[in-house]
Design a protein around this nucleic acid. Sequence first.
DNA 1: ATCTAAGCGAGACGGTACGTCAAGTCTTACC
DNA 2: GGTAAGACTTGACGTACCGTCTCGCTTAGAT
Lengths: 200, 200, 200, 200
Amino acid sequence: MNTSPSSSPSSMRRSESSRRATLDAALDLCTERGYGRVTIEAIAARAGVSKKTIYRWWPSKSAVLLEAFTEMLVTATPFTDTGDIAEDLRTHISGAVAVLAVPPFGPAYAGILSEVHHDDELAETVRTQLIEPRVQEAVDRLRSAQTQGQIPPDADLHLAVEMLYGPVYYRHLLRKPMQDEAAVAKLVDHVLRSLGAAAG
Amino acid sequence: MNTSPSSSPSSMRRSESSRRATLDAALDLCTERGYGRVTIEAIAARAGVSKKTIYRWWPSKSAVLLEAFTEMLVTATPFTDTGDIAEDLRTHISGAVAVLAVPPFGPAYAGILSEVHHDDELAETVRTQLIEPRVQEAVDRLRSAQTQGQIPPDADLHLAVEMLYGPVYYRHLLRKPMQDEAAVAKLVDHVLRSLGAAAG
Amino acid sequence: MNTSPSSSPSSMRRSESSRRATLDAALDLCTERGYGRVTIEAIAARAGVSKKTIYRWWPSKSAVLLEAFTEMLVTATPFTDTGDIAEDLRTHISGAVAVLAVPPFGPAYAGILSEVHHDDELAETVRTQLIEPRVQEAVDRLRSAQTQGQIPPDADLHLAVEMLYGPVYYRHLLRKPMQDEAAVAKLVDHVLRSLGAAAG
Amino acid sequence: MNTSPSSSPSSMRRSESSRRATLDAALDLCTERGYGRVTIEAIAARAGVSKKTIYRWWPSKSAVLLEAFTEMLVTATPFTDTGDIAEDLRTHISGAVAVLAVPPFGPAYAGILSEVHHDDELAETVRTQLIEPRVQEAVDRLRSAQTQGQIPPDADLHLAVEMLYGPVYYRHLLRKPMQDEAAVAKLVDHVLRSLGAAAG
DNA sequence: ATCTAAGCGAGACGGTACGTCAAGTCTTACC
DNA sequence: GGTAAGACTTGACGTACCGTCTCGCTTAGAT
């Protein structure tokens, strides 16, 4: 695992304090003015860091925010195995919904996704650093439920994950986030039922 | 139905030719350079229209592209009623997937969504002009299937629509669009089954 | 003599009320915001007159202000003949200084002069309508003094006029206007002495 | 003496080559299209300099041209002391007339003066950087003549300077520049005579 | 223990686009 | 036909950020 998701000059002489100040300033600005109004210029000014330093270590402002965002997400949506697949999916999805509900993470993530379409490198990073690990965890948990007979052996687990995350993204992007635990539970139930599982 | 989706001064003296040239130029530029590199400046130059005129009738570049995009979408994803709900949902979702697959509409829509999070007015327009009419059509069709007994009477139709559109959006935003008709069919089957419908 | 110093279509159907409203609005705006910030746009709005109408009758905003300014000046600096040339010159120059000291005339005139250098037509109008009549009056009065023996017969009267007006313009343009009657009197004395006249 | 006539950030890091290119481009454009048609936009384009850089160092286009003009004038109108005050004044005034006769300096200066009336900062700069040093030189030279008895001890030297420069400005602004050395000589003679000096 | 090369802050630079303003032209409807 | 209203193209405004580029400075690793 690459412990430094950001990039090039690769040096031990990198200033950790500059890195921290940059990430913090970026999140603060994102909270205050929204993703679209965050600029490298402003991050540098706020962090007391030179623009050059930012450009040395990150390719774009979305990369900065992505790093800050990822740091957060890793700890926020753990995957548990209580033996009850429905319970565990509810916990996981609720965690994701909760993170998106807390400024600045929701807007920041929407902003990052907004640039995925015209930034190939960013798209790659989002997929490999953020999406795939999470999807893999979900698939793994589903597969374990499968071996325990809670889910039919021929179920399409990747489709299931998409049916779980899809509505979450859909609502987040249209700014009508999932309201409560009940909505999440209902979604999880439907997805499990669509796989042919016994009702939750 | 609002016949003039764009905005303020409201006048009969508005030049239709300027409006057309603007929308066309916007889409062309979106194809050529991608949403992120479209600028009002460039649209104006390409359309042979003054920036002032654009600013007079639209609040932002996303509003311009949204209008162009909406014009297209209205005719591209009609709702049919063949009596077979699975068939009709497949047709509709496939239409949406197909539109998103054709440049410049896919990138344009991703770009528009990307600004929904920091542009309240745009968000409102997207929801009322674009999303809700389409969702309503889908819900209507599902309800009709419900009265015909193809779907249980207590099914949550709005959730169903979200489970259909959700993965489409999810994949579009992560740039892994639905590959083929089979994938769409599988999704539709799962959603219907999650509602407790008889298998497709 | 051309009674309508402004220009082209020459019609009896011209609206006098529009003309008045335009000139008044122009002077008002000149007082309020200074010559540089007067615009045709603003004059039209203030006067309740269409831009087209202004462009129909005047070639530029300086032409508008020049017409308004000239109307005023005609009556403000009369030439008297008390028999005492020094007295009469003092009266005349003091009149000119006084007009320039009253907003909006001073700034307006400075503004008009400022465009003389890149507007040939305006330059011509300023010279023939404004400067030359006034210079001629001064020369005439000096000549009359000459025939009365108050000034030597070989004196260069045009140079004298320039030595009188020169410092007035010089100070006006550098925004250090003549302070008082005494300064004017001193100037007149010096000019007369430079001509070889008996001391005032 | 202020070695950096232009303004604010005051830095050693300023690019001299940008400064030169800007001043040169400004004068060139002034020659080609006249003061009124010179724009910051065009200066920047011609000089290969960014607009930001111009705005960083000068408050307005007149300030740019003033700096260029001042550089020229300093060397063009030196003050000599041949012992003959009339001779020296003729030399000085002829120098000023000559500079104004050479495009782009005459039109540039008229343009600058044209903005003195609605630009307080510019007015201050023109007075302190351009006018007063020159006036002071003239007054000094006149005072030296005074101590040598060429001019009466009670003569008003500042008035004399105004009588010299006044007609030059007057004629320049009305675009009837002094024609020749003889005209300048005549003016100088009259001014000296007005002071009570012995005839030239 | 001192070189020395890197990272660093600061910020000037050439650019692109922004959103606004006014210029001057043109069209529509009124009188 | 002159007029008020106002949409239109053009082009400049002054500002904000972009990403690149010196500058000196500090600072850690290698000499």
